[in-house]
């Protein structure tokens, strides 16, 4: 029994120590977060540095607040695009998906399906190269939203 307990601890610690950012919960996580300066790490960092003093709840800074006034929304959209980078590119190539629904809501689009189709047909404009930056992507998406939904931010 003692042996099993030791094994259990060893197993736990191996996977558990791999979450130095403390966000994946229950001590579990992945080794690959160790390398600095990946977009992923930055995204996770954004979720923990929102604590302002000890009187407020630690709430992520790079977040969306759909009720907030238009000001500051550009930064919020960029945070969303950055965090959902791969999933969003996938959904835009396919013409629909959950990340498009989220974006549609942020832009206040009445018709998510039309927005999705418009994004798809503009894929090459939104992602002209493999290393296009988030703010360029945001600018193009903004343009598509203006045409397809009649709203922009």
């Amino acid at each position: 029994m003692k042996k099993l307990l030791v094994l259990a601890v060893a197993l736990m610690s191996v996977s558990a120590f791999a979450a130095p950012y403390g966000a994946s919960g229950c001590g579990l996580g992945s080794m690959i977060f160790e390398k600095d300066n990946t977009w992923w790490k930055q995204v996770l960092a954004a979720t923990t540095n929102g604590t302002s003093g000890n009187q407020t709840f630690a709430i992520s800074s790079g977040t969306l607040n759909c009720d907030s006034p238009t000001a500051g929304k550009t930064a919020q959209v960029e945070a969303y695009i950055e965090a959902n980078k791969m999933a969003l590119a996938n959904d835009i190539a396919k013409g629909n998906g959950e990340t498009i629904s989220g974006l549609s809501k942020v832009y206040g689009c009445e018709d998510t399906a039309t927005f999705g189709k418009a994004l798809k047909s503009n894929y090459k404009m939104i992602y002209p190269t493999s290393d296009v930056g988030t703010n360029e992507v945001a600018t193009q998406i903004n343009g598509v939203a203006a045409t397809a939904c009649g709203t922009s931010i």
Partner: peptide, 18 residues
């Protein structure tokens, strides 16, 4: 500690990444 994180971070982390 308790923290608030937008759900999309968690979805990306768990569904896609891990």
């Amino acid at each position: 500690t308790f923290t608030a994180v937008p759900y999309y971070y968690k979805v990306r982390e768990y569904n896609d990444f891990e």
